[in-house]
């Protein structure tokens, strides 16, 4: 071990990893190239588009600029953790809420965080939460509708099972 490296322990989608990485390695590189995850995407490398957004200890973070060495004992969540039938994923399919879909991973994780703190977001709540996410295809309104539908579905499920 030298000064240019660090050792850290991170949890990614409930799996523990003990890592020895370079001080300059980014979370995006770890997720895509070392753990083989597909959902976090490179769009700009400069916190300007949101395509790489994942959750770090439950909070949305830009994986492209987050350094792995700053994440010791942190918990990372990506789209892969949602399993495929999360209400947000179901609603995106139902509303065809996307065109090329490249921006959706980041938007989904931002929305997961939003719905955890706000179970009934208004259109303004959603657009404010997604202000840092670029969509070039113009699927914004569909994405907003899908998030509202997912929120309603989570509220209904919550009323039944009080999750």
């Amino acid at each position: 071990m030298n000064d240019s490296h660090c050792e850290c322990h991170v949890t990614v989608n409930d799996q523990d990893h003990i890592l020895s990485v370079s001080q300059t390695d980014t979370l995006l590189d770890l997720l895509r190239n070392h753990l083989g995850l597909n959902s976090p995407r490179y769009g700009c490398g400069a916190e300007q588009c949101g395509a790489c957004t994942v959750l770090v200890n439950g909070e949305p973070a830009f994986a492209c600029t987050t350094l792995v060495c700053s994440l010791d004992a942190h918990r990372i969540e990506t789209v892969e953790s949602l399993g495929g039938d999360h209400p947000l994923q179901q609603a995106i399919i139902e509303y065809n809420a996307g065109q090329c879909g490249f921006c959706l991973s980041g938007i989904i994780m931002q929305s997961v965080a939003l719905l955890r703190r706000n179970r009934d977001p208004t259109r303004d709540d959603i657009t404010r939460a997604l202000a840092g996410h670029l969509c070039r295809c113009g699927a914004h309104n569909r994405i907003i509708r899908a998030i509202q539908a997912a929120a309603a579905s989570i509220r209904t499920a919550g009323a039944q099972t009080s999750v």
């Binding site: 895509r32 995850l37 597909n38 959902s39 949602l82 994923q89 399919i93 065809n96 996307g98 991973s105």
Partner: peptide, 23 residues
């Protein structure tokens, strides 16, 4: 009628969907 997009599920579940996912 309206169809459900066939390509969307892979794109929102982390399955390989884009050129960058070829490994």
């Amino acid at each position: 009628r309206s169809a459900t997009r066939l390509d969307l599920p892979a794109k929102i579940t982390g399955r390989p969907a884009f050129i960058q996912d070829l490994r």
